[in-house]
């Protein structure tokens, strides 16, 4: 998971025009030919900055995304569910780690990226600013949130920057296991007691719209998407992916016997797609601004973990330095 502002680019086109036209042309040609750009290759500064922002945002989302699920790890209702959820959250920590590493190949350190997160300069996916209120939310996150993430990420396996594309290959394999575990939780709850079924419906009611927002703003309000598509950082438009998600998810909800909370959702024979209702973009932009329901809790938890762990990281560094000094003495 998970990026919110896939369409944005950093740096102005004017800056590109100051770069060596021959280099720019060669770069554009390689990208157009679907070649991977590697860390040592020349790249436009705006391309580099766009990638740093996108990959680090993706990494931050993995790390912040551990918190809403961690909220239920200590209350997972069976030994198997606890083990599976722990494994899933561990995967997310792993995704964060290799995404930070991928971003570091672009000349930015993990400490700098984490500082940008903690000071609010870097974003993470809006979805993690919503609370997990029942166990069914763990199912809904796997089913919907990881489902939306897969939709976003499968195309990124062919993104133009090599280290990012290769990281996504591994991430996608694990995300599909995550989605299955989420759907399996929903199946168990929907086949369970009336209380469980009600929890499942309530979770869908609360997570549906935020999940649709994960694909980012509508195409007509995503002005930088064109550049990212041309650079093949991004390969499908927000609205295309969102439509695909709705089309795949509606039959899955039917199978569970759950109702998607959208009275305008209906099959459109002529389009060959589901029509769906208007998204509350005001809510989306508020959450992007950091005004999501539990945004403060999430950032507080991350900052505290970092600050309270500083002495551990310092100790590890000090020990390593002493070891080196002893070895060379």
């Amino acid at each position: 998971m998970y990026t919110t502002e896939l369409g944005k680019t950093d740096g102005s086109l004017a800056q590109i025009s100051q770069e060596d036209p021959a280099l720019v042309e060669a770069f554009e040609a390689r990208v157009a030919a679907d070649e991977f750009i590697e860390p040592k290759d020349w790249m436009p500064e705006a391309y580099r900055r766009t990638l740093v922002r996108q990959i680090s945002q993706h990494a931050h989302s993995e790390i912040v995304g551990m918190l809403p699920e961690g909220n239920w790890l200590t209350r997972a209702p069976s030994l198997r569910r606890k083990a599976v959820l722990l494994a899933k959250i561990q995967d997310e920590a792993g995704h964060g780690l290799y995404l930070y590493c991928a971003a570091e190949t672009l000349g930015v350190s993990r400490a700098e990226m984490i500082d940008a997160l903690h000071t609010g300069r870097a974003k993470y996916s809006t979805i993690f600013n919503y609370p997990t209120l029942t166990w069914a939310d763990i199912g809904a996150i796997g089913w919907l949130v990881d489902g939306a993430a897969i939709m976003n990420q499968v195309p990124l396996q062919r993104t133009s920057y090599g280290p990012y594309a290769r990281a996504m290959v591994r991430v996608c394999k694990e995300e599909s296991f995550h989605q299955r575990q989420g759907y399996e939780i929903m199946m168990a709850m929907c086949a369970g007691t009336p209380d469980q079924k009600a929890m499942a419906q309530d979770a869908l009611d609360r997570w549906w719209w935020p999940s649709l927002m994960m694909f980012g703003p509508p195409d007509d309000n995503s002005p930088n998407s064109a550049q990212s598509m041309r650079w093949r950082i991004k390969r499908d438009s927000n609205d295309e992916l969102r439509q695909k998600f709705v089309d795949i998810t509606k039959p899955q909800a039917d199978h569970l016997g759950l109702e998607i909370p959208d009275k305008d959702l209906k099959w459109n024979e002529a389009r060959g797609h589901y029509d769906f209702g208007a998204i509350d973009w005001e809510e989306f932009y508020a959450v992007v601004r950091g005004e999501g329901p539990v945004a403060k809790e999430r950032m507080k938890a991350r900052r505290e973990a970092w600050e309270q762990g500083a002495w551990v990281r310092d100790a590890a560094d000090a020990h390593e330095a002493k070891q080196r000094a002893r070895a060379s003495a």
Binding site: I63, G70, K82, L86, I89, Q90, A305
Partner: peptide, 24 residues
């Protein structure tokens, strides 16, 4: 599992989860 998401470094989160998985 109480540490999950709150460890001093990402690498520590990973190793605590490893131990937790073995134990469960």
């Amino acid at each position: 599992t109480e540490w999950c998401g709150h460890a001093p470094a990402l690498e520590i989160d990973l190793s605590l989860a490893n131990i937790g998985l073995d134990l469960i």
